[in-house]
Computed example of a mutant assay.
Amino acid sequence: MNRLIQLRHTLHQFPEIALEETETAKQILEFFASLHPDRSYEKLGGTGLAFVFEGKKPGKRLLFRCELDALPIEDLKSSDHQSQIKGKGHLCGHDGHMTIICGLGEKLAQNRLDSGEVVLLFQPAEETGEGAKAILEDPKFEEIRPDAAFALHNLPGYPLHQVVMRQGTFAAGSTGMTLDLQGKTSHSAHPEAGINPAQTLAVLIQELSQLPKKLEGFGLLTLIHAVLGSVAFGTSAGKASLSMTLRAYDQKDLERLIDLVKEASKSEAAQAGLGVNFTFVESFAVAKNDPILYPIVEKAAENLGLSILEKPEPFRWSEDFGLFSQICPAFLFGLGAGENCPQLHEGTYDFPDELIETGVEMFWEILSGI
């Protein structure tokens, strides 16, 4: 464990944000060089890596995935492994998740499988929702396409080592959405000569946040940013934009909510003689757990004597592991990081080293149970 803890601390000191994880990938490659995987893949979906350990006989291919990227947030916790990169920090625990997968690699190197294959995937750009999509669209992915995929995420606010599970949706799907309204500027002394989107923007601010009520299941629309014209007192504004985050527990509900926003925006824009267009960023699929895999993960936790919590509601945050659940049976579960642990994305957060061994053993038990 000392070697793994040291690796985690090194990764923590040198964080790289989404799509920039080249040095982090080099660190992982160096670690796996001594483990002699049967196949290695580099530059998957950009900076991603995959290591394959083959069994003695053919069988199922299982994928265990972690994330390479850190956050553009200052690491505020003083420690001997505090981030050395200003304005960047592993404040979501991806350094710990990577270390867990490295520990699983060590166990696979020492204990060859009787059958099947295990793929250890290090995915870039989870925080922006771009990484899983890039991995799945990489032609090399077809060589490692799994029969089942697993991932975990540490969860501050839950007892240390507790396994948090759900059948069905584990984490919401979400997308960032911006609508741009195009009108016509005019002199502010003669606003009637232009088309000012101010009134339409005001209506949409009121109307859009009510749209989730039209869904059958849970939905949430959070307005995050609005812009009208510019600070030019002689000019009546001719453009505006409104940005929001949409969330839902069901993929169809999320798509329906997007359609409702488009319909309402087009209707209001048309009445005012405005043009409207839409852009999307940071899109995350719903992370849905396969019911067939649930008892396998549950049994793994029981074998290790870990506390198990069946969460009644999905998490509202998103995780782009959800995209894997669209191409194969998949399962995402949580590991409690401590009830007094700072929350994810906070400047004082630091992944608990005690969770490394727990994560490795959970994945090993899952692997042994299939």
Rank of each mutant, 00 (worst) to 15 (best):
T222H: 08
V231Y: 15
L208V: 09
I224W: 12
E192R: 05
Q199G: 15
G194E: 11
A226G: 14
G217W: 10
G238K: 08
Q210P: 04
K214A: 02
I195A: 05
S209T: 03
A232K: 14
G219I: 02
H225T: 11
Q206Y: 05
A202D: 13
F233L: 15
S230Q: 06
I195D: 02
A198M: 07
L201C: 07
V203R: 06
A189T: 12
G194L: 07
A226I: 11
P197W: 02
E216Q: 15
T235L: 09
L211Q: 05
A193D: 15
G234Q: 15
N196D: 02
Q210A: 01
I205H: 02
L201S: 04
Q210N: 08
G194D: 13
S188I: 10
K214M: 03
S230A: 11
A232Y: 07
A189N: 07
L215A: 05
L215W: 01
Q206N: 10
T200R: 04
P197R: 04
L201R: 00
E207H: 04
V231P: 09
A189C: 15
L221V: 09
A237S: 01
L223P: 08
G234Y: 12
I224R: 08
E207L: 04
T200G: 11
L220Y: 10
A189F: 15
G234S: 13
G217R: 15
K214T: 02
A226T: 10
Q210F: 00
P197G: 10
E207W: 01
E207F: 05
A198F: 03
P191Y: 07
F218T: 12
T222L: 11
V231Q: 15
L223S: 14
H190D: 12
E207T: 06
L211H: 04
F218Y: 14
A232Q: 10
T222E: 09
V203D: 10
T222Q: 08
S230G: 11
S188R: 07
S209A: 09
E216I: 09
L223H: 09
V227T: 05
I205M: 12
S236N: 13
L221T: 08
L208R: 02
Q210S: 03
H225F: 13
G229Q: 02
E216L: 08
T222C: 13
V227D: 01
P197Y: 04
A226L: 12
L215K: 09
G238T: 06
L223K: 06
E216S: 11
Q199Y: 12
G217S: 15
P197L: 10
T222K: 14
G217A: 11
P212H: 03
T222A: 12
L201Q: 04
L211A: 08
G217C: 10
E216P: 09
A198P: 06
P191F: 08
V227Y: 01
K239L: 00
K214V: 02
H225L: 14
F218G: 12
H225D: 14
Q210L: 01
Q210T: 00
T200F: 07
